[in-house]
Write a protein that binds this DNA or RNA. Structure first.
Lengths: 109, 109
DNA sequence: TTAATTAATCGTTAAAACACGAACAATATT
DNA sequence: AATATTGTTCGTGTTTTAACGATTAATTAA
């Protein structure tokens, strides 16, 4: 079992960041955000990589909770998981809104 | 030379996300944000990993442009690169503020 | 029943990430 | 000159990621 070395929020935020840490996965999220239809085939067409690789990236995003898939045989419809999308958004928002130390003269440069 | 398969903003955003995609690196950023003093040793003390590994993570963050280091022999002072911090913040902000398609009944569930 | 469509999974390969101890470099101190 | 302090780099091993073609599974259509 994976023991936690860091606090849960840190782990969670890093998990979301990792999931978004590849251009293909960013592209997928952007595509899903603006599409009403979001079949696997449409996503694949949009990307310059093989089907198997697209499937892998979709799995990674699903694993991270950022998207979800629904079988509509013989197709599969994907879409953003709004609940986690919002949670991730919040974690990042908190992260970026950290106040930076203002003692510049004591820090670099 | 690495050819671009995706648009530059997508690549850049993914790059920042990737750099933040490990709990140790999130922890480092949080620590740097709230510290005035930010020597390597202080960062190392804060983390449950070996010196060499801390150094690796710092390199990754520096490579991504999120931090910068300054030698102050025999110590090294690290701090957040404010310019890129702000740029990353903006890219993420744009990303999260994408409008999601509202035709729920046509999307999953 | 057979063939076509769609997408996941399998098997593989190559590269990168992660982690560590040991060795090293650069300066300060004794 | 010898020693101590600090942090990087080296060498190594393990794990994960990324990519692909081929195979498979599930349903629909012919």
């Amino acid at each position: 079992m994976a023991e936690k070395k860091y606090c849960i929020k840190t782990e969670t935020l890093a998990g979301f960041a990792k999931a978004l840490g590849h251009p293909a996965r960013i592209a997928i999220m952007k595509f899903l955000a603006k599409q009403d239809t979001c079949y696997f085939g449409d996503i694949h067409e949009e990307l310059p990589i093989a089907k198997a690789t697209v499937s892998q990236h979709l799995s990674a995003l699903k694993e991270a909770g950022l998207i979800q898939g629904e079988i509509e045989t013989p197709k599969v419809r994907y879409c953003i998981n709004r609940e986690n999308w919002q949670y991730a958004q919040q974690l990042f928002s908190e992260f970026w809104s950290m106040e930076l130390c203002e003692k510049k003269e004591e820090c670099c440069k």
